[in-house]
Amino acid sequence: MERRPWILLAPALVTIVMLVVVPMSFILVYSFYENIDLAVDRVAFQFSNWQALFLDNYYRIAIWKTLRLSVIVTVLAAVLGYIPAYFIAMTKFRQRWLLLLLLILPFWISFIIRTLSWIHILGNQGALNGLLQWLGVIDAPLQMMFTEATVIVGFLHVFLPYMILNVYVSLEGIDRNLEPAARTLGATPWQAFLEVTLPLSLPGLAAGCLLVFVLTGGSYVTPLILGGPSDYLFGNLIHDAVVSELNWPMGATLSFTLLVLLGAVVVAYSRLMGLNQLSKAFR
């Protein structure tokens, strides 16, 4: 066997083992410990945490809510992200870097601040209600905050750039002459897009979807800030278990479950599409 690839891979492998595999193993071990009191654990090998996970409906509902919301956010991000990505990739505007810069500019502001900003827009005292009242459209402020819709808006706001960048990169890689070629052969602009550009950009779209899905599925801050009492995700249960209840073994159990769930999505995706040869799936 050749040694060179392994030498080159070594730093990455060591890092992943030290920072991911080892800690995750600790977490798995921790999930078998027993929680006696707030923050008091007993070293053990027992299954009460796992039993709770499988028997308690509460957790199953959280998984369902998480998958549902992740799908909604992913689909919306795909539709809303594709359009600006297409525009940036196809524009004749010379300063394209400026558009890309605008896209990553929000990353310079804390994610929490960006999320909180929606309260000032959609809240009862927020900009939108203020505007509507000033225009006389409504008399009393509309209750818009702390619903599933605001959580979705918050997610889209934060994750859309990931989708746009992924789609943009794959659109950028498409030969500029393909659409005109389709057009001269008789396709309308829309047909040319559907037949040529869309299928060739699917790898980027799929990668963007995977990223947004996994990022949404693993979140807890956005529903915490923008959601109501029933808008929690699986990540919020982990947060509650670890931070509020100080039940670390249960937190470990839930963490590991989330890892397996999202990992399964990634594996299924790579099985279905092939992580490297995505485009072949659509030939």
Partner: peptide, 22 residues
Amino acid sequence: VPIHKRNLGLVFQNYALFPHRT
């Protein structure tokens, strides 16, 4: 007359074949 109604055959410098099609 829009492109798709002109019935012209155009051969591009870089061929512009559709890579995802046979």
